[in-house]
């Protein structure tokens, strides 16, 4: 279990990015964190990853305090961040340097197969499309088998079709070992497709505003009325988090509001 207790972050310039954020996330749960810009989503994720230290409060994974990057916690960034001087296969195997070469090769080959890029093993990162590069980043993060995988708006730079494809693919990969997924996103659709629970955050300073359980069986049909009603719930909550007036629920459901930033 991943426990966040009163996690706060104030930057040296005085900006309070995150204020007393608490949450408990079960092993294997998929949680989406959504909120307007400046609500501290990325700050929170970086604190869980151990990249930045919280100003106060604690992050613990199975009773172990996290203050620096941890072997059981992986992260996928908005950009693939592949190392351009390594082949695709070597990028995926980057976190496996401690394993014997044969074992590493086997794991990398299986991961390549799993993300559908077996024919790209020897390619350079510059030769990949945006979606392929992000698949490699996913494989690189998953191959050391983390217990918790953090995703910082991982699909926001991709086109709508590729994004959908990768969302389904991510769920498929998740089912292999069922790590905990914590996904920061702007995209209400993405949150409802993927998450068991959506945490809505409120900006200035960033704090938890609302939680919405998504009790939908998987695979989820993006076009079902139930899916729509969950989406509307999240959107309404988002609107309230930004102190907007919400005259009635239907009015908030315009096509332009499926994406939030």
């Amino acid at each position: 279990m991943l426990a966040l207790e009163r996690v706060s972050k104030t930057y040296p310039n005085g900006v309070e990015a995150l204020a007393r954020f608490s949450a408990a996330i079960k092993q294997g749960e998929i949680v989406a964190i959504i909120g307007g810009s400046g609500c501290g989503k990325s700050t929170l994720l970086r604190a869980i990853a151990g990249l930045d230290r919280a100003s106060s409060g604690t992050v613990t994974l199975d009773d172990e305090a996290i203050s620096s990057p941890h072997a059981k916690i992986g992260i996928i960034f908005q950009e693939p961040r592949l190392l351009p001087w390594l082949s695709v296969a070597d990028n995926i195997g980057f976190g496996l340097a401690d394993l014997p070469a044969a074992e590493r090769r086997g794991k990398v080959a299986r991961a390549l197969e799993r993300v559908g890029l077996a024919d790209k093993a020897d390619a350079w990162p510059r030769e990949l499309s945006g979606g392929q590069a992000q698949r490699v980043a996913i494989a690189r993060a998953l191959v050391p088998q983390p217990e918790v995988l953090l995703l910082d708006e991982p699909f926001s730079a991709l086109d709508a079709f590729t994004r959908r494809d990768l969302q389904d693919h991510l769920l498929d990969l998740w089912a292999d070992t069922r790590p905990t997924l914590i996904l920061v996103t702007h995209d209400v659709d993405e949150a409802v497709v993927l998450a068991d629970r959506v945490l809505v955050m409120r900006p200035r300073p960033g704090r938890l505003f609302d939680q919405i359980e998504i009790n939908l069986a998987r695979p989820r049909d993006r076009n079902s009325p139930l899916f729509d009603s969950f989406k509307r719930n999240v959107l309404t909550s988002l609107d309230r988090s930004l102190d907007r007036n919400v005259p009635d629920r239907d009015a908030t459901q315009g096509p332009g509001q499926a994406m939030w930033w």
């Binding site: 990853a49 990249l51 620096s68 990057p69 941890h70 072997a71 992986g74 992260i75 960034f77 950009e79 961040r81 190392l83 001087w85 980057f94 976190g95 340097a97």
Partner: peptide
């Protein structure tokens, strides 16, 4: 910095960070 963060996430030690991230990046 983003590439260096990848090294931090995989908990590279100082020498490993130099060998696996900094050296190829400055080459």
């Amino acid at each position: 910095r983003k590439i260096v963060e990848v090294g931090r996430i995989f908990r590279l030690s100082g020498p490993a960070m130099i060998r696996r991230i900094l050296l190829p990046a400055v080459l």
